Structures are given as C-alpha cells and as structure tokens.
Amino acid sequence: MTISRIFATAAVLLLACVHACAADFRSVGSPSVVLYDAPSVKGSKRYIAPRGMPVEIVARYGDWVKVRDVDGELAWTESKGLSARRNVVVKVAFAKVRAAADDNATILMTADKGVLLELVDPQATEWVRVRHQDGIAGFVRAGEVFGI
C-alpha cells in the first residue's frame, strides 16, 4: 500500500469519526418531560425539564435516551418527548447578541444566563445564529451557549 493511499484511508476514517462523534442535541418538545435516574418510569424522578430546554443525547436504550443538560447532569427520558427543533441556552452572564458574527457588530440585545434562544442555523462555527422569542435575531459566540 502506498503512503498516499494510507493517508487517504486515514483521512476517510477521521472524517467518519468526526461525523459519528458529533454531539447530538435535541430540545424538549412536549410541554415538559420527566428526567429519571434510569431508563424506566419505575426509576427515581430527578427533575422535570421544561419545553424548549436543550439536551445532549449521550446514549440510547430502546425508546429511552440518556441526556446531559447545561449543568452537565445526566438523566434518562423517553425519546418521544424530545424534538429535532433546536434551541440553545445562554450559559454565561450577559451574552451579547450581535447584528453580525463580529465583536464589533451592533449589540441587538444582552441575554442573561439561562435565557432560551432558538437556534436558527445549526452549522455553528465561532458564532451561532439565534432568535429570541421576542423576534430579535442575531449572532452570539458559540462558547456562550449550550446546545450546539
């Protein structure tokens, strides 16, 4: 096998891993869902997640998914309660939503920690395009939100 063929094979495998290893985020789609300590309604209830809350799916077991929340807590919920519609939650105090993906762009609003924003474009780079429930749309730094 030639060196170029080895590098080509390694590149394909690396790209496959990056795609397979990408974070899988969803949002709570039902009015709310119960999060359990085990993949069963017989498990202990941990807490109730409100509609729109973003979660990262870290494991699947039948109709159940193990999720991680913004605080890093792990719990189980039924997958039917989650939606493919994506939201993010601000994880810092006073995240600035700007008119463009630039630190010098006009500040449209400031979002405090815990504010829920709709993810407009899931193709995140250093900046994420978001929309507030009041209709304000702009860009926030990816490191200031959870859910991407």
Rank of each mutant, 00 (worst) to 15 (best):
L116P: 02
D134F: 00
G138A: 10
V90S: 11
T110I: 13
E78K: 15
R141K: 15
G72E: 10
E118G: 10
G135H: 06
G143D: 13
H132W: 00
V130R: 03
V88D: 10
T110K: 10
V89W: 00
A93K: 14
W76Y: 13
W76Q: 07
R86M: 14
V88I: 14
H132K: 06
A105P: 04
R131T: 02
A100Q: 14
R98M: 11
A75L: 07
V115A: 11
E144D: 14
E126C: 00
R131A: 13
A101L: 03
D134C: 00
V145T: 09
Q123I: 01
D112R: 11
Q133T: 05
Q123G: 02
Q133K: 09
L82I: 09
A93Y: 12
K96Y: 03
A95V: 12
G72F: 00
F94Q: 15
H132N: 03
A99H: 03
L74Y: 14
T110V: 14
A93E: 15
H132F: 01
L108R: 11
V120C: 01
Q133G: 01
F94T: 07
V89E: 12
G143K: 12
L117H: 07
R85S: 14
L116K: 05
V120W: 04
S79Q: 13
T77V: 11
L116D: 04
R129A: 13
A93P: 03
K80C: 05
A101H: 08
W127S: 04
T106C: 02
L117I: 02
L117R: 07
D112C: 01
A75S: 15
T125W: 01
S83E: 09
A84W: 07
E73N: 14
V92G: 10
L116C: 03
A95W: 06
G138H: 09
K80M: 11
A142F: 06
Q123N: 13
A75E: 05
R86C: 03
E126H: 07
G114Q: 05
L82T: 11
P122A: 07
I136A: 11
H132Q: 08
W127H: 09
V90H: 02
G138Y: 05
R129Q: 15
A101C: 04
G114F: 06
N104T: 09
L82R: 04
E73D: 13
A84K: 14
A95P: 10
F94E: 15
L82C: 09
G138Q: 10
A99Y: 00
A137D: 07
W127A: 03
E73T: 13
R86V: 07
E78T: 08
K80A: 13
L82H: 10
I107D: 08
E144L: 08
G72M: 02
P122Q: 02
A124D: 04
V128A: 08
I107E: 12
A142E: 13
K113Y: 10
V145R: 10
R131V: 03
A101E: 12
A105Q: 05
